[in-house]
């Protein structure tokens, strides 16, 4: 088999972090290289010139750190189980898809279905996200968290079964508010900074309580530390929460 590591500078391999120039690599080659290096025990990766390569970090477990420069393609961190991933750019669709554990921090915007069926770990997006963010998020005793700094597309938290979504909406100029948030949700909670008026079927708006505020504090603090926002200013505005109307939104549909 071709030695994918042969073009890397050996000096790189000796120190902890591996620098990989992804400019001329297709998804498969880049991921094969990463898998190979992970097998050899490397734990820190700086990926440069990333441009649309898919599945980065797919299914990887353990204490690994990725610093991604550029725009990774779809399914970044899919099935990921522990690694921490920092993206200095935007991400495309399916970021954190069915992620089991770990951390994804995006310093730009994210595409559609970010955090699809997330089971654990945390995702922080500095900017906006596309449609159906946090769809099918799950949780059993522990809860995955998705924090969005900007605004979200429609159907935020659709079919949500567990976990926490925090929508901060920090872009004051944003005109459009999320519609159909929480459609068909039967578990979990969506926190929204400010007010929204349009909910999905099966979801309702509620006032937050002390426990909610604690959770919001914790997540917002982490968010502000990561992206350099003024925590006090972020917390100036009120929050609301969206929860399921019932745990069985379709319970009466069938006999």
């Amino acid at each position: 088999m071709e030695d994918l590591t042969k073009n890397l500078e050996i000096s790189n391999l000796k120190i902890g972090a591996v620098n990989i120039d992804a400019a001329e690599m297709c998804s498969f080659k880049l991921n094969a290289l990463i898998r190979d290096l992970v097998k050899r025990g490397f734990k820190e990766f700086n990926l440069h010139n990333v441009s649309g390569q898919r599945y980065i970090g797919a299914g990887l477990s353990g204490n690994i750190v990725f610093k991604v420069h550029g725009i990774p393609g779809n399914d970044l961190g899919i099935f990921m189980n522990g690694p921490n991933m920092y993206v200095y750019g935007n991400v495309q669709d399916g970021c954190g898809n069915t992620m089991n554990d770990g951390l994804i921090v995006v310093y730009g915007n994210a595409g559609d279905v970010v955090g699809y069926s997330m089971r654990g770990g945390k995702i922080f997006i500095r900017g906006d996200v596309g449609y159906r963010a946090g769809i099918h998020m799950k949780g059993y005793r522990t809860a995955p968290a998705l924090v969005i700094g900007g605004r979200a597309g429609d159907f935020l938290g659709e079919y949500m079964a567990g976990g926490v979504i925090l929508l901060l909406g920090l872009d004051e100029n944003a005109q459009r508010e999320v519609k159909f948030a929480g459609t068909g949700m039967h578990g979990g909670v969506i926190y929204v900074r400010g007010e929204i008026t349009h909910f999905g079927k099966g979801a309702k708006r509620e006032k937050i309580n002390e426990n909610d505020l604690q959770l919001i504090h914790k997540l917002a603090k982490q968010f502000c530390a990561l992206f350099n926002f003024d925590f006090d200013k972020v917390m100036e505005q009120e929050f609301i929460k969206i929860v399921p109307v019932s745990h069985r939104p379709y319970g009466k549909l069938y006999t």
């Binding site: 279905v113 799950k138 059993y140 659709e158 079964a161 567990g162 068909g184 039967h186 578990g187 745990h247």
Partner: peptide, 20 residues
Amino acid sequence: AKMRMIPVGTDALSPAPHHD
């Protein structure tokens, strides 16, 4: 509920499409 990571007593729904 533990295996599927959903609340106890809720309908476990796998909607028609995969959303990706």
